[in-house]
Structure formats: structure tokens, C-alpha cells
Write a protein that binds this DNA or RNA. Structure first.
Lengths: 213, 213
DNA sequence: GAAATAATGGATCGTTCGTTCAAGAATTTG
DNA sequence: CAAATTCTTGAACGAACGATCCATTATTTC
């Protein structure tokens, strides 16, 4: 009955996401998006309604990427090592994408904060990440790997704080050594004191011992 | 020989700063700034050259505020309690100003990152904050209040990370309890183990004991 | 008071913004 | 094939952007 779409919707969303991520919602003009996607403006408007609709679609896509990135944390034995790995991977993705920070954080810091739908999406995504963190931390506590007195929810919030604070650090003159040291410090704070060695030795380098005296 | 300026330069700068802080560089239009300052566009251009010039002036002013906020940390006996207080004060300032995050961080995450002068200003300000943190931490280590194995510079970077990560947390659905817990966790990580009681008891509530077993 | 200088107010510049119009091209269903 | 429907294309819309012009007003120095 109707003509079929010629462009690859996935590719268009991915490229729109990249443009929004790099330049922000207001910073990415329709012309930027036209260039990034290869589509004409009218095609974008046919498919997404308006700029905000395209942004929401891109944001949903981003959210899917976030969910995907959390899957290693869903593994049965996931613990502090996997959390540390998550941070490292996240930072390297930012670097690879040529982007200063998480799109959700940039959005939360931006001026489209007044939009309730966008705000809800940002909040929900943040909560999803912290929930995944929390589950892993709870398991680590149960396993004796993480401190027994940790509240998993709060510890997850703490980890979330560090995760996104690292972007602020590295873009205001912080060196990569500073970033690494912050990660080490963070997991040093979460790890259980070395009374009894934890069952699975962490495979990454972020296991400097605290309490050396 | 010439007419004297009628407007209060300090006030204009302060209001411009506020506008830029809330809406960002690109988000704050000349008309916004005209409304915020009460000046006409031409007066702004006479005084600051262009929008970027006004932003640089506002940024310099912000930097002065940052320096000023660091003075309590310069007190002879300043330690972890003062650092904790600094974080709390900073967050309450953000709240009072109706702003999501530090202007420097918002700028660093924004799109005017390519401007070398702005970038340099952001980097320098971040370094100044971390240097102040570092000095206090070094003193705390020497006093036995903070962990002996801390590298003050790295610990300062860690604190900086948390400080700005907290904005990300609280604007992506994190509760104030989450924020408080993150602060507690952070200073718990820095504080020396309770082998010997620290000389000056910290006056704030953020001194939950670690190592309870 | 006269000359010089700067602030003011209002209009307006060219550009870019997000968005839409109108017409042709393409593809599916009957 | 024909009708219906959607996509594509290029041009254009009004509004807002940063920035500037210009005549007027006010103030300071000589």
C-alpha cells in the first residue's frame, strides 16, 4: 500500500545518538543531524516528528546500550572485579566515542531538564545502573568480598558517584594516573578488610591493600 | 575626559555568571543576559567585546568565588572535617543557586571545549581545587587523621571525583540519603584506621567507623 | 562653556535555528 | 495497470540568534 522506508533506522538512530552525545541536545542542530545521518530534514521529521522526538528515540537507544553494558554484572559470580571492569570499560567507551561524559549526565546537567519525559528517562536509567551495582555489591557482601557493613543501595550510589565524577576529573585537568588512583581508592573502600582472604582473587590490578600497618 | 560607567560592574558580572551557570554558554542568549543584567545589548558589547568575552569575565568571577570558598581549607588545623564541610557547603550552594553542577564541570562537558582559553581556565581552576584538597590531606596524613599510605595528590583527585560525581548522582534520581551515604563512604575511605584515636575529634557526623568487626 | 568620550536606546543587520510546504518519485495493494 | 500511500527532495517559512549601526544623552576634562 505504501512505499517502504529506504534508510536503515538502526543506523540513523545510532548516528543521531552520536551527534546528540557529542554536541548535546541544543548543540546538535537539525543540519548537524542531517549531515550525521545522511537523511534529509523532512525524512527525519516524517520518522520522528520533531527534534525532541528524535532525541527521545536516541535516548532510548542509549538506554538500551546501557542495559546491554550491564549484562556482565548479571553473571552469577560477578563481584568487585566485574564492577571495576565496568568502570574501566565505561571510561574507555567515552574515550573511544570522543565524548566527555555519559549522555544521561550531560542531559541531566543541561537545560532540557524541565522536560518531564526526558527527566523520567534519565532518572530511570540512572536507577537501573545503580540497581545493577547494588545487586552485585549485595552478592559481594554475602560472599565476604565486600565489607559486611555496606548498605548495597548506598554503596551502589557511591560507585555511581565515582563513575561519573571521573569524567569531571579527567576533563578538568585530572591525569589518567589520578583517574586510576581514584578507582583504586574507591574499591579499596568497598573491599572487606583482609582478615580472611576472599575466595576469588580479583584479576585486575585494582586490589591495593588497605590497612597495611 | 569620559563619562563614567553607570552600571555596577560587579553586579553585572554576578548576574551574567548566574545566567551562564544556569543555562550554559550557548543556552544563555544575549537577550537572556540583557534581561538578567538590566543592561542593553550595546552596553554589554562595549564592556566585554562579545558573548565569549562576557563568558570569560563571568568565568573569572566564578574562579574567584572558588578560590574564596577554599579559604577555610587554608586554616592551619584544617583536616578531614573541613573537607567534608567543604563538600556539604558546595552542594548546598548548588542547591541555593538552582544549578545542577559546578560551572567548570558543565563547561568541561559542554561544547565550547575546543576553545583553548576556556579549556585552560577550567583546567587551572580544577587544579587549584585539587591542590587545596591535597594540602589538607597531606596535613591530615601527617597528623595521623588520614591513612598513612595515602598519596595526597591522588586522594585529592579522588575527593574531587566524588565532589562532582555527587551532582550526577543527585540529578539522575539519587536521593539525598544516597548523597550523604556517598560522602560518608568517601571519608571513611580516607580516615586512618582506629588503632589510635585521632587527636582532634571530627565535629561533623561523617565519622562512621569502618572495620567494626 | 567647549570639546571629547562613553553610555544609552532602538532599530536592524545577516545568519542560523527548528519546522513546514509543495511537488515529484517510488513502491505496495487492489 | 491504477489507485493509494509514503518517501524523497529542494526551497522556503517565521522566529531567534549574535552582533552592529546610529542618533541621542550624559558626563568628564580642558
Amino acid at each position: 500500500m505504501a512505499r517502504t522506508r529506504e534508510f536503515d533506522m538502526d543506523l540513523v538512530l545510532e548516528r543521531s545518538l552520536s551527534a546528540f552525545w557529542m554536541r548535546g541536545f541544543e548543540g546538535a542542530s537539525i543540519r548537524d543531524l542531517v549531515e550525521a545521518t545522511g537523511l534529509k530534514a523532512q525524512s527525519l521529521y516524517n520518522a520522528f516528528g520533531d527534534k525532541r522526538g528524535l532525541f527521545l528515540a536516541a535516548l532510548a537507544r542509549y538506554r538500551a546500550h546501557v542495559s546491554e553494558s550491564l549484562t556482565p554484572l548479571g553473571a552469577p559470580g560477578a563481584g568487585l572485579a566485574e564492577l571495576s571492569q565496568y568502570l574501566e570499560t565505561f571510561l574507555s567507551v567515552l574515550r573511544a566515542q570522543g565524548v566527555s561524559a555519559c549522555l544521561l549526565v550531560k542531559t541531566a546537567f543541561g537545560e532540557q531538564t524541565s522536560d518531564p519525559e526526558i527527566r523520567a528517562l534519565v532518572t530511570a536509567s540512572g536507577a537501573a545502573v545503580r540497581a545493577a551495582f547494588s545487586a552485585v555489591i549485595a552478592a559481594s557482601v554475602a560472599r565476604g568480598e565486600a565489607r559486611a557493613d555496606l548498605d548495597p543501595k548506598h554503596a551502589a550510589a557511591y560507585l555511581f558517584t565515582v563513575l561519573h565524577g571521573l569524567s569531571a576529573l579527567s576533563h578538568t585537568g585530572g591525569t589518567s594516573a589520578d583517574v586510576q588512583a581514584s578507582i583504586v581508592e574507591t574499591f579499596g573502600a568497598l573491599r572487606a578488610p583482609c582478615k580472611r582472604p576472599s575466595k576469588r582473587p580479583s584479576k585486575r590490578s585494582s586490589n591495593r591493600q588497605r590497612r597495611t600497618t
